[in-house]
């Protein structure tokens, strides 16, 4: 009976201590310019969403490519070149699709093309084409990349920032100041 009292006491103490846990402030969504800023990553930023995902061999891996601007330093752009490197030791490229932002939420049909070197480098070229607008502005979704896993492993999909480029409709280059990779875990 005494042991039971001890157990209740410990349980009550644990309940009190556990219920008063201070959570760590972990606001790190790659699409959030503040989160990128907190990480010391400059803007505009090329990011992938989600920043990390764990899949099984039977799943497909969907990675979304985003351009993220700070609200106070937005610049209109019309075309983007992305060079993406992925781990081909366990992932195989399946599909690449234009994102909602570059299609102006499916209102425009962009010029969207890509090249794949057959190894692990993908180059995506996309231009915003619309009958009324010359460019688009803000944070948005550029492309979706779908991979098929064929082996287990853990690695990152990343941008080769020095080969990535963003231009306005007059072909002026807009500097890209940061990028974030995405982690893929295949179990």
């Amino acid at each position: 009976m005494k042991n039971l009292h001890g157990f209740y006491l410990i349980f009550a103490l644990w309940l009190v201590v556990d219920s008063c846990t201070i959570y760590k402030k972990e606001l790190d969504n790659p699409v959030d310019h503040k989160a990128n800023d907190e990480q010391g990553i400059g803007s505009p930023t090329l990011v992938f969403y989600p920043k990390s995902q764990t899949k099984s061999l039977s799943d497909s891996v969907l990675i979304e490519s985003f351009i993220v601007f700070k609200p106070d330093s937005m610049e209109p752009f019309a075309g983007v070149h992305l060079q993406i490197e992925f781990p081909n030791s366990f992932l195989e490229l399946d599909t690449i699709k234009p994102g909602l932002f570059i299609t102006d939420t499916s209102k425009a049909t962009p010029l969207f093309t890509y090249s794949y070197d057959g190894e692990n480098i993908i180059d995506i070229y996309t231009f915003f084409i619309d009958t009324v607008k010359y460019n688009i502005q803000g944070t948005g979704h550029i492309a979706d990349l779908v991979f098929t896993p064929f082996n287990t492993g853990t690695d990152s999909i990343r941008y080769n920032l020095k080969f990535c480029e963003m231009i306005d409709y007059n072909d002026n280059i807009i500097d890209l100041n940061g990028d974030r990779a995405a982690e893929v875990i295949i179990q």
Partner: peptide
């Protein structure tokens, strides 16, 4: 927050 890629929702 973690489960959305929408800028406004973020």
């Amino acid at each position: 927050y973690n489960n959305t890629d929408n800028e406004k929702e973020v």
